[in-house]
Simulated assay, not measured.
Amino acid sequence: MAGATYDYGPAPQQVLDRVAALQDQAAAQGMPLATAALHFARDHPAAAAVLLGTANSGDLAPQPGGPALAQVVMAQG
């Protein structure tokens, strides 16, 4: 996570450690942290919608397993 930022500055070690722990938990479930974050937001009772954005259009490139995951998510409603 070299160069990671938090609150407009370099990420403190405490934040980096928490991110690493969350990445490990997501990997144990067979998914990247970004996918786990979307699931969390989607399933939170206070969320009426989840809006996504990106600063880099290259982030929108198709990902392996993306269509299959989208089908699973759509089937779940």
Rank of each mutant, 00 (worst) to 15 (best):
T5G: 05
G3C: 00
Q76P: 04
A36N: 04
D17H: 01
D59V: 08
A20T: 01
A37C: 09
G30P: 06
Y6F: 09
Y6M: 02
D17T: 04
A47M: 13
N56E: 13
A68C: 11
L51G: 05
P12T: 02
D43W: 10
A75H: 15
A41W: 06
A68R: 12
G3T: 03
D59L: 12
P62G: 07
M31V: 12
R42G: 05
S57A: 15
G9A: 13
A55I: 10
A75G: 15
R18G: 03
L52I: 10
G53I: 05
A21W: 06
A28M: 03
A75D: 15
T35Q: 10
P67Q: 12
A75Q: 15
P62I: 07
A34C: 12
D7P: 04
D17N: 02
V73A: 10
H44G: 07
A68P: 09
A34R: 08
A34L: 11
A34W: 11
A20E: 00
F40E: 09
H39I: 14
V73L: 14
A75K: 15
Q76K: 11
P32C: 08
Y6N: 00
A75L: 13
Q13C: 00
P10M: 00
L51T: 04
Q13I: 00
L69K: 04
A28E: 07
Q63D: 06
Q14M: 03
A27E: 13
G3A: 04
V50C: 06
D7R: 05
Y8M: 09
A34S: 14
A20K: 02
P12G: 01
G3Q: 06
G53M: 05
A37H: 06
F40T: 10
A46D: 11
L38R: 12
Q71D: 08
A55T: 15
L60C: 13
L69N: 01
D59W: 13
H44T: 03
M31I: 11
Q71N: 13
V73W: 14
A21Y: 01
M1V: 02
T5E: 04
S57G: 14
Q13H: 00
N56P: 07
P67T: 12
P67F: 08
T35L: 12
T5L: 04
L16K: 03
V72K: 06
G77I: 07
G3I: 02
M1N: 01
L69A: 08
G9K: 00
P62E: 09
D24H: 13
V15A: 02
P32L: 08
S57D: 15
G58K: 15
V15P: 01
V19M: 00
G66Y: 07
D7S: 07
Q29N: 07
A68F: 09
L33D: 06
A27P: 08
V73S: 05
M31S: 08
P45T: 04
N56I: 13
A70M: 13
A47Y: 03
P64D: 05
A28Y: 00
Q71F: 01
F40Y: 14
F40Q: 10
G3D: 06
P67N: 09
A47L: 01
Q76N: 14
Q71T: 06
P32Q: 11
N56T: 14
A37N: 09
Q63G: 07
M31W: 02
A68L: 10
P32F: 10
L16E: 00
A20Q: 00
S57W: 15
